[in-house]
Each structure stands twice: as structure tokens, then as C-alpha cells.
Design a binder for these strands. Structure first.
Lengths: 358, 358
DNA sequence: CAAGCGAATGAGACCGGTCTCAACATAGCG
DNA sequence: CGCTATGTTGAGACCGGTCTCATTCGCTTG
């Protein structure tokens, strides 16, 4: 049906109407399946549409329905399997409801995130799912609300913003992981995170930009304190932003006068670089150092040694976020303001007893 | 500037024009920065826009420019780190050029892919990047051409379709990997792929749906034949579509009368399940069985043992695909019809000598 | 000083759909 | 048979931008 000539201008309702010998309005009704159309006309129009290979222009449709059947997703890094999986959850859920997804990657950069929100709003997405890079810069998220479009926060909440958030309830598992280390006799327990902070040290007053990291830390600190151990500022490290920084930080930890005997890595990307650094220095896990990673992936069971991890149901987080957003778009009541999915500690072989000092 | 009341209707050029006391046309000129506008008017309009917090409706803009500044990407599985990285390459490149990306996941399902193409075309994306699930069903890809919008194939080419493809030149590395196994003395070399085929066996006449797998196989077969070894149909296996199937296939291979002494896994997802199956059966790599994986990821160097892999520059493939698409969108000449990036064999420790039969 | 030219501006068509409203036909009812 | 209720259709406004065209104005130039 497609002749070589007609690749230029797409056929429109008007074309179909003309061919079917009816008015534009009637053709639109027959095609859009709304209003009342007689059967004979409907068939005629549909045949004409078929002949002309008519496809509606969704842009035009969106423009006066006001809905684009598209949701925007803004994450820090799709390359990270964590967000990859979440994205899959969102995408599967959205597709099932007839929605498409526009994805924007911010590299955890606030300015990029601000631009991303603006662009998606301008593109008239129906709703937004955002893993906010910072709890402090939230004016742009307020804008989303002002625009009347629903916003769901992914993996992280933002205090002071009345938006629904879907998170992993990570603090209890972070406590469990820390407790496991404490049980094995460790007291010098380090935590390495990618988060950028004003300083790099730790204090009780520390305000973190990302709630999911705050929660990890809260869980760790509470477990430590329940055993009478004060968190040590030199063991809680931020700014592991890439391989180089992570390796440098790991090196610094190892060269402390009183180095840690166990390390908790805040995500899998960091874990990989920490482990590489340990291996390069000839340190073995868990003989020389115990290790726990946040996030579980298939490969975590196949490393040497298999890694003890805090497993997060991140696919389900994506599904939940999309589901809530879609419910709001459908005008249904959204029960929660803060959905939290449970994490679990998966014990494998990377935690061992404290090595005797040489 | 945002009053609680105005969340309903967004401000338009007409609003700005009224406030600035000029015509809609003039306001549009001042805002859109085209045509001729006097400085005084421009300032007045811009001030008005600022006051009203004006944001252009990209939908409306797209509708009569005909361009949406959006490209569509269709892949089999974003959850797979392979496509995750490619996506990142595409996304980074697109963003740098002011384009956004709509992502659709097909689960390697042809019908879903057909729908995806239709939806994206209807949404009036400016161009498409597709990793086609099948070389046989390509009418929907032809449609893209007919629509006048550029199409770039990612990772896979489609014979008979005159579209640009960006691929990894994988055959030579597949040969190298096979040669490495042959050098170690292996002759019973298995290949496990996720690809669905009519039968599950192998024959020379076999037509595969995905060129990147065809190429892997071609490289393997040519290396075998150069040593006078005929590929054995029972060692070349398809249909490893999920953990269960992969484990079943691996089990079947191991239970052959004359089982393989080496396995090549067509991608990292399969590799993980093969390795798990081996471990569950108490088989060690490389002592009991040698192993090579296509795709390299950070974790591949940290497994037990570190894996010998065929590393593919998949991020760069994404960048190249997006670059070519953007060039075509800009009306620039597109030199290649088929860009091919080199893969490399990375030797680690998962290949060893053939074990002596017990 | 009149003609000529370019810059600035406004009116309104247009993109491709949706949707309101009025016109008309037919059927049901008193 | 007249009147209204219901169903079907067409004309045209509208969404929010872009863009063409005609008009007006100021300035140069012969």
C-alpha cells in the first residue's frame, strides 16, 4: 500500500475523510472511536484509513487532549545495574498501561537534573519519576507539582517536599549487616559511599544529600552504638565518585594507623573498585578483610569469595513507583505517601573473623 | 512568581504578548529568537515571559516544525548491562546535541518491536536506533524508511535492509577466543546462546535471527575448521532464554556421552547461569572445564576464577550509532553504511588445559 | 522632495488532531 | 398528524506554537 512517492507528507484525518467522502469530524469520530457514527460510515472510513495507511499524529492528539501518554524518568546513572533494573520495572509497568518512557540521565549532577525536569515538563510528559540527586536543591521538583503533574520519587525521599516516594527500607538491613560484622568480632568498620558532601568526614550533624545513603549510615551507626561503639569519622568516607577516587579512598583507609578490618561498600560500582584495590594490594577477603556490599547482582555469588550483600528489591521499587504514578494519572487515590520495600541481608562468604595482627 | 492559582493552565505566547502589549507574532519572534525584533520590544517581551514564568509547549512547537528533538531507542533488554552501556552512550551523545531519548524494551519479542516502532513513529520521533530482534521480520523497519526518518541499527545488521548499522566486529575475536581454547588442547568446544531458532541444533545452512550471534558463530566455526575440526551440532546450543533454560542446556551439555571440555557463553547473562550450574555440580573452572564469555564487565575480573572474555566497546557502539543518526538528522553526509568497532580477547584465568579423563 | 529600501510589526493561516454545537433525519409517542 | 427524543453528520473553533504576507515606518538616495 505504500507507494514510493508518499514518503513525504503523512496522511491525515482530512485525507481519510476526503477519500471516504465524509467530513473531517466524522472521520475523526470513526477513527478515534468516540461519539456516534453509523456502522456503514465507520466501515467506509476504516477502509479508507487502511488504504491510505493512516497513522494518527500523536503529537497533535496530545496537544488538545493535554495528555501525552508518556512519563519521564530521571536517574543518576542507567549504567549502574541498580537503576537499570529499576528502569526495567518502570518500563514494564508503564508499557502494560500504554505509556511510554522518556529517560534522562543526570550523572548525579543537580544542574543536569534541573534541566531535565524543565525539558520533560516542556515536552508535556504526564508525570515524572525522579531519583533526586540532592535533597537540598528541590525548587525544580516543586515546579513539577506546580505544573499539576504527579511526581514520584524513586529510591530517595526529599524532606520538605510533599511528594510520594518509593524507597527501600534499607536501615534495618544496614544494621543487620553491621551486626554480622560486629558478631564476627569487627569493631573497625568502614563505609565507602559515592556521595559528595561538603567535607569528607563524618559527624553526627552531617546532612547528606541522598536519603538512601543517610539511611544506610543510620542503620550502621545504630548497630555500632547498640554495642557501645562510636562511629569513627575516619572510617566513614564519601566522594567515591569514580574508579580513581574510590581506589584512592580505599588506599587511605588501608593506610590508617588503625585500619578497618571490614568495609561496607555503598553500591556495587564502589564495591568493584574497592575489591580491585584490595586484590592489587594482595589482600584477601575475608582472611585479611571482611567485606559487605549494598545491592545484590547475579555475579555477586560468583566472585572470589561470594559476597555477603544487602539485597534490594529494586525491580519492584521501579514497578511500585510506576504503579503509583499511573494510579495518580488515572485519578485513583494514592494510599501511601511513602512506600517502603524491605531489603534483606544475604550471607555469603565475604565476612570472616578479625585477622590477628601480624 | 508562581501563585497557587495558576497551576491549571500554562501560560502561552498569547499571554506573554498581551502582557507585553504586542502581537502574538512579535512575542513569538522575541521568544523564539527568529525574525527581526527591536531591542526594546525584545526586552519587554522577555520581561513579560519571565514574570509569567512562561515555558514553551514543545508539543506545539514540534507539531509545526515537524521535528521533535527526540530519538527513539528500541532494545531487547536494558537490564542486560550490554544494552545498559549502549544506552548510556546513546543518551550521552543525544543529550549533548539537545536531543532526548525515548526508550522501549522489547524483551527480544518481534511483535513488541513492531508495536514499538509504530508507537515511536506515531509520536513523531526524529529518528530511530534499533537493535532488531530478528533479521527475518523487517517490514516494520522498512516503514521507518518510508516515513522518511533515519534509522540506525545497533549491534546487529539486517541483510536486505539498506539501513546504517553500527556493530562490533566480533568474528575475529570469536576466532581468537576459539583459537585460545584450541591452543590449550580443547577440541570439544560448546557454544551457548540465547537466540531462538527453528530447531535447536546446528547446521551449516542455519539462518540465525541475529547477526551478532551469527558472527560469533562464524568466528568460532572458522577457527575450528582451520584446525580441521568440524563443528559438532550437539555442542552448539540455542534457546538459553532464561536461567532455567540456560541451566537445562548446560546440564544437557555436561551429560553428553562426549561432553565439551570448554564452553563459550554468548553473553554475560548466560555466562552467569552456566557458571552457576557448573558450581552447583561441583565443577571447577578451569580445572574441570574451560570457559570464555562474550562481553566484559568490571566484575568479570573478580570472579573465581577471573574470566577470559571477548571485550566489546559497547559504550562506543552507542555513541557511534547516535552520532551517525544525529549527522543524518543534521543533513550531513553519513559516510558509512556499516560501522564496525573492534572487539578484543582479554585473557584471564578461565581457560586451562584439557583435564585428563578420570 | 519623492522614490526606494529594509526593519519592525500585526493579522491570520497552518500543523493535525479533538470537541462543541447546530442542522437534519428518523423514530416513537400522544 | 404534530411534537419531541435520539442518532448521525458537518462546520468550525481550538490547542499553542510557527511562519507567511501585508502594512507601516524611518531612513537613505538621486
Amino acid at each position: 500500500m505504500v507507494e514510493p512517492g508518499d514518503r513525504q507528507r503523512a496522511t491525515t484525518v482530512a485525507d481519510v475523510a476526503r477519500r471516504a467522502g465524509v467530513s473531517k469530524a466524522t472521520a475523526a469520530r470513526a477513527l478515534g472511536d468516540y461519539g456516534a457514527v453509523s456502522d456503514s460510515v465507520r466501515e467506509r472510513v476504516q477502509a479508507a484509513a487502511e488504504d491510505l495507511d493512516y497513522r494518527p499524529n500523536e503529537l497533535a492528539r496530545s496537544m488538545n487532549t493535554g495528555r501525552s501518554k508518556t512519563i519521564g524518568v530521571i536517574v543518576g546513572d542507567i549504567e549502574n545495574g541498580y537503576f537499570g533494573l529499576a528502569m526495567r520495572g518502570i518500563s514494564d509497568t508503564a508499557k502494560a498501561a500504554g505509556y511510554d518512557v522518556i529517560l534522562i540521565n543526570t550523572s548525579e549532577n543537580v544542574q543536569t537534573e534541573i534541566d531535565a525536569v524543565r525539558v520533560l515538563l516542556d515536552k508535556r510528559v504526564d508525570g515524572l519519576i525522579v531519583a533526586p540527586a540532592s535533597s537540598f536543591h528541590i525548587e525544580h521538583l516543586r515546579r513539577v507539582d506546580d505544573s499539576g503533574r504527579p511526581l514520584v520519587l524513586l529510591d530517595r525521599r526529599v524532606p520538605g517536599l510533599e511528594a510520594v516516594s518509593v524507597e527501600v527500607d534499607i536501615a534495618p538491613s544496614a544494621s543487620d549487616a553491621t551486626a554480622a560484622l560486629l558478631d564476627a568480632g569487627h569493631t573497625r568498620i568502614a563505609f565507602v559511599s559515592a556521595l559528595q558532601t561538603e567535607g569528607e568526614g563524618y559527624s553526627d550533624r552531617l546532612q547528606l544529600r541522598v536519603s538512601s545513603v543517610t539511611d544506610r549510615l543510620a542503620g550502621i551507626v545504630s548497630a555500632l552504638r547498640s554495642r557501645g561503639i562510636e562511629p569513627s569519622a575516619d572510617l566513614i568516607r564519601f566522594g567515591a565518585l569514580g574508579p580513581e577516587r574510590t581506589r584512592a579512598i580505599t588506599g587511605e583507609l588501608l593506610e590508617l594507623e588503625d585500619p578497618p578490618t571490614a568495609i561496607l561498600a555503598s553500591d556495587s560500582l564502589i564495591a568493584l573498585d574497592v575489591l580491585r584495590t584490595l586484590r592489587d594490594r594482595g589482600l584477601r577477603v575475608p582472611d585479611d578483610l571482611s567485606f559487605v556490599m549494598f545491592d545484590d547482582f547475579d555475579w555477586a555469588a560468583l566472585t572470589d569469595p561470594p559476597l555477603t550483600v544487602v539485597a534490594q528489591p529494586i525491580y519492584d521499587v521501579g514497578v511500585a513507583a510506576a504503579t503509583i504514578l499511573l494510579r495518580r494519572l488515572a485519578g485513583l487515590p494514592h494510599d501511601d505517601v511513602r512506600a517502603r520495600l524491605p531489603a534483606t541481608l544475604v550471607l555469603r562468604d565475604s565476612v570472616g573473623p578479625v585477622p590477628v595482627r601480624a
